[in-house]
Amino acid sequence: MKITRRQLLILLPAAAVAWDSVLAGTPETSPNYKLTEHWWGMLVDISKCIGCGNCVRACATENNVPEGYFRTWVERYHVSDTDLANPVVDSPNGGKNGFPPILGSGGRNFFVPKMCNHCADSPCTQVCPVGATFMTPDGVVLVDKEYCIGCRYCIQACPYGCRFLNPKTQTAEKCTLCYHRITKGLTTACCEACPTGARQLADLKNPNDPIHEFLRTHTVQVLKPYMATGAKLFYNDLDGSVR
C-alpha cells in the first residue's frame, strides 16, 4: 500500500485521537460510593479528650506512618491564670506514648488533638506546582504519590503544620481522613480507636449525620479562622489560647 504525503497528513490527527482513547482505559469506580454525595469533616470534642494517644498510635498502624512523623498528634496545653496569651504546650512524641502526669500547677490544662483540617479552600493545594495535591469532590485533601516531586511548597503553605516529607518516598504526606476506610463505610482509624468519642467523623452532606445537631447546639470553632481556609476540623470547647 502506498500512502501519499497528503493521505498521511490526514491520517495522523485521526491516529492521535484513536491513541488517546486507547490510553483512556476504563476508570475504576467504587460501586456504592458516590463522590458527590459526601462532604467530609471531623469533630473534635476537647472536653472529652483524655490524651491517651490511642488516635496517634492507631493512625500510625493504619497508615504505616514513619516513626517520628505524625499525621495526627495530640498537644497538651497549660494556660496559666496570669498569661492567657502564652500557653505552655508539650507533645512528647506527638502524644503517641501518652503524657507524663504533671505539667505546671494551677491554670487550665487540656489536650488538643490535631490533624489535617481538610480545608475547603486549602492553601496547600493552591501552591502545588504539579497537581499532586488536591481536594476530592467529597471534601478530602489528598496527595498523589505518583505526581509529588517533593518540593515541599505544600508543607510550608499549611498553616496548621499538618504535612511532612516522608523520608522513604520523599513525597509529601498527610492525613487522608482514612480515605480508604470512609469510602467503604468505616470510620477513620483515629475515631475507631478513640475510647471517649472525642473524635467523630462527620459527613456534612448527610442530613442524618449527628454533626448538624451538634453544630446547632454547641459553640464549635475551627483553628485560625482568620486565615479563611474553610477548615472542616471542628473543635468543641476550644480554648482561645490554642494556636
Binding site: 492507631a58 480515605y179 480508604h180 469510602t183 482509624a189 475507631e192 480507636a193
Partner: peptide, 12 residues
C-alpha cells in the same frame, strides 16, 4: 489517584 487512595488495605 482517588481510586488508588481508596484501594489502600484496611488495618482496623
Amino acid at each position: 489517584a482517588i481510586t488508588e487512595m481508596a484501594a489502600q488495605p484496611v488495618v482496623f
